[in-house]
Deep mutational scan, measured.
Amino acid sequence: KVLVLALYDYQEKSPREVTMKKGDILTLLNSTNKDWWKVEVNGRQGFVPAAYVKVL
């Protein structure tokens, strides 16, 4: 399983997205889209901007 680090806070803007806080460790589920990556955080799955996270 691939983990990513949240570099910035992100507030979800649609039901398909998830909120994350800077420093959160998320599970990367899909990174085929260069702009939006699907992650799991706190038991929820959704998209975050790829530029806001870094693969650990």
Rank of each mutant, 00 (worst) to 15 (best):
K1S: 13
D35K: 13
G46I: 03
T19E: 04
K13N: 11
K34D: 11
E17N: 06
L29S: 04
E12T: 10
V53P: 00
V18G: 02
K13T: 15
E17P: 04
D9E: 06
K21S: 12
K1H: 15
G43L: 07
K34F: 08
Y52C: 05
W36Y: 09
A6S: 05
W36A: 02
K13C: 14
V4G: 10
G23M: 04
D35H: 15
L56V: 08
V55K: 08
W37P: 02
V39E: 00
K34C: 08
R16F: 14
W37D: 01
Q11H: 14
L7N: 03
V41I: 15
K13A: 11
V39T: 02
S31V: 08
G46V: 03
W36I: 03
P15E: 12
T27L: 12
V41F: 13
D35N: 09
V55T: 10
Y52S: 07
K1G: 10
K21F: 14
Q45I: 11
R16H: 14
Y10H: 05
E40T: 07
R44A: 08
L3C: 07
N42V: 08
V4Q: 01
L7I: 11
N30S: 14
L5M: 15
K22I: 08
S31P: 10
E40M: 10
G23D: 07
V41T: 12
T32N: 14
Y10T: 01
D24C: 05
D35Q: 13
E17V: 06
V48P: 00
G23L: 03
Y8G: 06
L28S: 02
V53T: 05
E12Y: 05
S14C: 07
V2Q: 09
Q11S: 14
N42H: 12
N42M: 13
M20Y: 02
G23W: 06
K38Y: 11
S31F: 12
Q11T: 15
K21Q: 10
T19F: 05
K54N: 08
S31K: 13
V48M: 01
K21E: 06
A50Y: 02
L29D: 02
W37V: 09
V48L: 02
L7V: 08
I25D: 01
K38L: 15
D35P: 03
L28A: 02
F47A: 03
E12S: 13
K38P: 01
K13W: 04
A50T: 05
V53H: 00
K34S: 14
A6W: 01
G23T: 02
W36K: 03
T32Y: 13
M20G: 00
Q45A: 13
K22W: 04
V53Y: 01
T32A: 14
D9R: 03
D24R: 03
V55R: 08
R44C: 05
V39I: 08
I25Q: 06
E12G: 14
A6R: 01
I25M: 09
P49D: 01
V4I: 09
L29W: 07
K1M: 13
L26F: 07
N33P: 05
N30R: 08
D35W: 15
L26V: 07
L28I: 05
T32G: 11
E40S: 08
V48W: 00
L56K: 04
R16Y: 14
F47R: 04
G46D: 01
L56Q: 07
G46F: 07
L3P: 03
A50W: 02
Y52M: 10
E40R: 07
V2S: 09
K21L: 10
